[in-house]
Structure formats: structure tokens, C-alpha cells
Design a binder for these strands. Structure first.
Lengths: 123, 123
DNA sequence: ATTATATAAAACCTTTTGGTTTCATGTCAA
DNA sequence: TTGACATGAAACCAAAAGGTTTTATATAAT
């Protein structure tokens, strides 16, 4: 399925089938044949999608007996999230500031309280 | 450039050139030729990328005089963000809950206060 | 040992992508 | 009105994407 460079996260999630595979694996590890049973295409096709997802490190597969079980590995989505966060400023300005605070709050965490009245409107 | 369905956001951002175009437009509206000057490919190629970005409604173009100025339209990125948020739970569990609250807080907004001591640790 | 299961790997095919070049058209400036 | 500029549109192209079928190999179960 090509001899090009490795696929990145952006390419990996571009295909709806692959997104569905990720969603499936979110519910738990599965072997190829069982993943395939959720689609109307050949096992080989799914195996190729899994290969692309592997290249992007969104899934990992380990042989167990005669089957190969795949597991979701969501860490690379962080890159996507970071990419997205850049565009918050052009878009949803009110909440983006708050979210930035949260994303950089580290292990300490935060406390959230519902506001009675808006006093910080004009940013 | 094909007779298929319209491109969606996931496909639109899959290409590095298109991501760079978005980044450029983030600094301000630009006509095609000026966008092109930032790349080492033909104007026609860039025009096609802009067309795909338009289909995904990530940019919009309006004629002004003899040029066509393009503008960033980041709203559709919300879909991507929402898609991403699903995977937070498998990954960054502590903050994902808080973020979910924020994302669903509507126009009212929230008030955020730094915590002195963690009392809600065990979720 | 035999057979059924689970996957791997290769060859092949069609459509889409991402680019090019060439030609046509509309608009601004002199 | 004559160029120069800015874009649009069409035809073409190579490679990658997304499938298929066929063949081979390893493991499990009988």
C-alpha cells in the first residue's frame, strides 16, 4: 500500500473507516478478525488500515497465540489537540483563555465554580 | 480535481500544505497569489488546495477587484475538537472531566479559581 | 497427523490526490 | 486600447489510497 513515508496522525484520522476502528478499540482490545466483523470489507483491507494506524502510533498490536490483538494508543492525539488549540484564539475567544489555563495547570488541578453574573465580558 | 463528495474537515487538514495555508490565513486575509508566494508550487496547485479548504468551510473567498481574498473560517474545527474530546477519557483522565464541563458551559461562562489543596482527587 | 483458524504477504485494479502546463477571461493602470 | 496582473478552467500525469483476490504460514484443536 505504498512506499512513501510513514503516515502521521493527521493522515491516519482522515479516513472514516480508521476513525471507526479507533472508536471500536476504545471499548477494548480486539483481534483483527473481530474488528473486521464490524465492517463490510475484507479482513485484508482492515489489516492495512491497522497498519496505517500503527505507523501513526495510534494503535499497537501484539501477537497472542494465533491472533494479533490491537490496542488503542491515544497519546499521539495530543499533537492534534495542540494543533487545534492554536485556532482557539480565532474562534471561541471567551472559553479559549480558560482552557489554556486548564491545559497548563499541571498536576495541581483547578476548582471550577459556576458564575452568577458575567463580569469579565469585554476581553 | 475529482467528482467525489465534498471534502470534510478531517480530509482538509490531512495535507501539510493546507495546514500551512490555514496558518498563513490566521495572520490575516490574503489573495491567492500572495499565499502562493509562500510555497514552492504553482498558483494553480494552491488554488486547488483553497478549493478543498472551501469545501470544508475552513476558508471563504470573496472577489475584491481583480483579486480573490481568502479568509480563515475556523468554526468547522469544532467538529474535530469534539471528536478529539471523546478520547480524552482514555488518556488524560483528570483534566478531561473538567474540560467536558467547560465545553458544555454555553454562553454563561465559568469562573476558575486555583485550588489550595486537592480534595477531589479520587474520581 | 489433520484440519480449521488467524494472520501475513504479494499481485493486481480503480479512483483520488496532488501536482503540472496551457489557454481563456476579467480588471486595473497608462 | 494596450498591456500587465490575478484568477479560472481544462487537459494531462504519476503516485498514493483504498480496495480486492490469491497464496503462504503459524497456531490450535481434534
Amino acid at each position: 500500500m505504498s512506499a512513501s513515508e510513514k503516515h502521521d496522525v493527521f493522515q491516519a484520522i482522515a479516513d472514516p473507516t480508521r476513525r471507526k476502528v479507533l472508536q471500536l478499540l476504545a471499548e477494548g482490545d480486539l483481534p483483527i478478525s473481530e474488528i473486521t466483523s464490524h465492517f463490510s470489507m475484507s479482513r485484508t483491507a482492515i489489516a492495512k488500515h491497522l497498519h496505517i494506524l500503527s505507523e501513526a502510533e495510534l494503535v499497537s498490536g501484539r501477537k497472542v497465540g494465533r491472533e494479533k490483538r490491537f490496542r488503542l494508543q491515544p497519546e499521539p492525539l495530543a499533537e492534534l489537540k495542540q494543533w487545534l488549540s492554536f485556532y482557539d484564539q480565532f474562534w471561541d475567544n471567551k472559553l479559549s483563555i480558560l482552557k489554556h489555563v486548564i491545559e497548563n495547570s499541571g498536576e495541581n488541578g483547578l476548582k471550577v465554580i459556576e458564575k452568577e453574573k458575567d463580569t469579565t465580558e469585554p476581553s
